[in-house]
Design a binder for these strands. Sequence first.
DNA 1: AGTCGATTCATACACTTGTTTGAATCGCAC
DNA 2: GTGCGATTCAAACAAGTGTATGAATCGACT
Lengths: 214, 214
Amino acid sequence: MADTHQRLLDAAQRLFTERGFAKVTVRDITSEAQANLAAVSYHFGDKLGLYESVLEMGLRFALELNESTMLPREGHNAEECLRYYVQHYLPRIIHADTRGWIYQLLKHESADPTPVARRYVQQAIMPRIEYLIGVVRDLFGDGASPDRIGRCVTSIQAQCLFYLPDPFKSMVRPGWQPHTEEEIRDTAEHIAEFSLAGIRAMANLRRGPRVRPR
Amino acid sequence: MADTHQRLLDAAQRLFTERGFAKVTVRDITSEAQANLAAVSYHFGDKLGLYESVLEMGLRFALELNESTMLPREGHNAEECLRYYVQHYLPRIIHADTRGWIYQLLKHESADPTPVARRYVQQAIMPRIEYLIGVVRDLFGDGASPDRIGRCVTSIQAQCLFYLPDPFKSMVRPGWQPHTEEEIRDTAEHIAEFSLAGIRAMANLRRGPRVRPR
DNA sequence: AGTCGATTCATACACTTGTTTGAATCGCAC
DNA sequence: GTGCGATTCAAACAAGTGTATGAATCGACT
């Protein structure tokens, strides 16, 4: 039959994405892939080996996608870059179950880490965060404290990641999640404008009267 | 020996919080509680029954905590309420591993839901969201679309929840998380001011010139 | 002391899990 | 066709899981 190796990878990707590493059995995978139970041992050594291979696929995919969120800093001002970033990052967060399955998979990883995560973090996430830090630093104009910049980056990242598909959140407010292209665009616009306003406010705060909520 | 029932609850709370329902065995719990393996069946029927009891404890706890985040709307303006909300909500998100363990437990629930979650959502989360919607609606002053209000509430909630302790995020930026009372207060202030600025911007946008990022 | 219900205990059972095994089968070069 | 390495297969294994069982122990009341 056609390449068992590949069929296993595909099935594993689908199932791991859906349920995470621990809640998928080797039997689930081999049955979905129409392969023999022992095929996993044969082709990947063991279950974790298969998982690593899937994550490897995801890493390559994520690196590609990363590129497409980061407008080159030369020739574009920081505001443009931030808007562009959110507009291109958000859709793939929201469609995590299909195109950007890797983000969905990482959500399971976050709740229940396997030893494989570290390299992914370093290669795929950190560059994007560094990029965002640069953009926000520019938005502040004159030097702001790294703390302040970090908090703003966190605010942006938090707003985006919150839109990861999540059955639990859907329980709270069914239909809360944007679906159509237009809804997603509007949501991205919201996040960008909301954040730009927030950052500007934090920048003014630096020398304006300090408002201390008690 | 002293109340086995209670010792089981305590151990279960600690372990479920740490690892989630699936990754804790009955033997883990009974050994931690220095009780016999069969004690879980005897006192709670089965493992899920014990889990439900733990979640019941958490629900009572969360309802208490909820109260303390919601400043009465009469006698306080919306800005005050928002600042107060974040200042009191954030610390318990951040200390989720100790005082507010229920939030930590719910994170596992979110990645891997058990049948017990629904009631929790309805009783503990929805009232708080409704409250926030009211506050944000007031901040807009004149009627804004529910979509717009919902997106702002989501932005606030996202920023707060992002600070849930998370080994994965700590891998990205070690020490990113505020620890001391003062750091937490500063972070809460950031979220409140950032969000207030964002909301004001969204409110002005309604009749000002519409900025369309391309 | 004796009784009886509540609780604890050691053990066993049925089931699922990841992995191993050794034979069977396939796909080709010769 | 023959041989041979790569692959597939059914079956078994060992470890771990939640739960059930029935005897032993406890604790208070008469």
